[in-house]
Amino acid sequence: NITNLCPFDEVFNATRFASVYAWNRKRISNCVADYSVLYNLAPFFTFKCYGVSPTKLNDLCFTNVYADSFVIRGDEVRQIAPGQTGNIADYNYKLPDDFTGCVIAWNSNKLDSKVSGNYNYLYRLFRKSNLKPFERDISTEIYQAGNKPCNGVAGFNCYFPLRSYSFRPTYGVGHQPYRVVVLSFELLHAPATVCGPKKST
């Protein structure tokens, strides 16, 4: 009989979030998941669920729940959905087409922007091929755009693959930082360890 609440607040209220290319994953298990708490945590810009209804979450049980978190800019949030393409979905964080879970995003301009520009958040701009779903690539190998090998040196047709967002508070919403948490629900042929409040007794 599990009584402890799932530590969603640790994920959502973390002081620092990860850069999207090096997104963070927390496995959540053996706890009571009260998803209604999430609705009250922040004024969400996005709370979209796929393959599951957000209002039914509190009635369900899962084997595992994974919470992935990272920062992107406002106009990239739409890429965090099944079947999307674009720089983020292709080279940084890719959801599977049959994704079961929820994408939660909110504006973090007050936390993640600086007047002089916050350069701490990076994204991958160049990659030889698209990522597979939930693949994480943290390599910093020089990207070869031409025929000549780069031998690890940046220059003509040889690019450092990561680029930094420079978040400034005066930017338009599309270029402001957004914190994203992706909850993916895993149903294996194994005992369910993460249940809503109704199912945990």
Rank of each mutant, 00 (worst) to 15 (best):
A42V: 11
G51V: 01
R27K: 14
A22P: 02
F185L: 07
T100C: 13
N87S: 11
C49W: 03
S29K: 09
E186C: 05
S166Q: 14
C102I: 02
S29Q: 11
K26F: 06
K26H: 07
S53F: 07
G146K: 05
Y35V: 11
C195V: 08
N1K: 09
N24V: 07
I138L: 13
K199F: 14
K128H: 13
I138F: 06
C31G: 04
Q84H: 05
Y39R: 14
A154Y: 08
Y21S: 04
I138P: 07
N13W: 00
L41V: 11
T100L: 13
W106D: 00
N130L: 11
D9C: 04
I80K: 02
Y178R: 03
L187I: 12
F156G: 15
L183H: 00
F156C: 10
V115I: 13
T100E: 07
E10H: 06
V173W: 11
T63F: 07
S200H: 13
V32W: 09
P197G: 13
D90R: 09
F62E: 07
C195G: 09
G86R: 01
Y50T: 02
P169S: 10
N40V: 06
F12L: 08
K56P: 06
V180L: 03
F12S: 03
V11S: 03
P177M: 06
S36R: 12
R124Q: 04
D68E: 02
N24G: 07
Q84K: 09
F45G: 15
N118F: 03
G174D: 14
T55C: 08
Y171W: 11
D9I: 10
S166P: 07
A42G: 15
F160V: 12
Y165L: 04
C195D: 09
A192E: 12
G174H: 12
A154W: 07
V103M: 00
D34H: 04
P7E: 12
T63R: 12
V180E: 00
R78P: 14
E10C: 05
K199N: 15
K94P: 00
N130Y: 10
C6L: 02
C195Y: 07
R73H: 03
L125P: 15
L41T: 10
C195E: 09
L5F: 11
P43A: 08
D90Y: 05
T201V: 13
D59K: 11
C49E: 00
Y123S: 09
Y143H: 11
A154F: 09
S139L: 03
D97F: 07
N109C: 09
Q176A: 07
A81W: 06
L162D: 06
S129R: 12
T100W: 07
V32M: 09
V37H: 11
F45Q: 15
L60R: 08
I28W: 15
W106Q: 00
Y178M: 09
F156I: 14
V115W: 11
K48S: 07
S200N: 13
K48E: 09
Y39D: 10
V115Y: 11
Y39W: 15
S113L: 06
T63N: 12
V182T: 00
I72C: 06
Q144C: 06
P54A: 14
T63H: 10
Y171S: 15
S116W: 10
D97S: 09
A22W: 03
N109A: 13
A18F: 05
P82N: 03
W106K: 00
D112F: 00
K26R: 13
Y39E: 11
R179I: 04
N107T: 04
Y35R: 06
N107L: 02
F99L: 00
F62W: 15
G174Y: 09
S200Y: 12
D68R: 02
C102V: 00
P7C: 09
Y123E: 07
D112H: 01
P82C: 00
P43R: 09
A22C: 08
Y119F: 13
F44A: 15
V37T: 13
A67G: 00
T85V: 10
C158H: 04
A105Q: 03
N147H: 13
A42L: 13
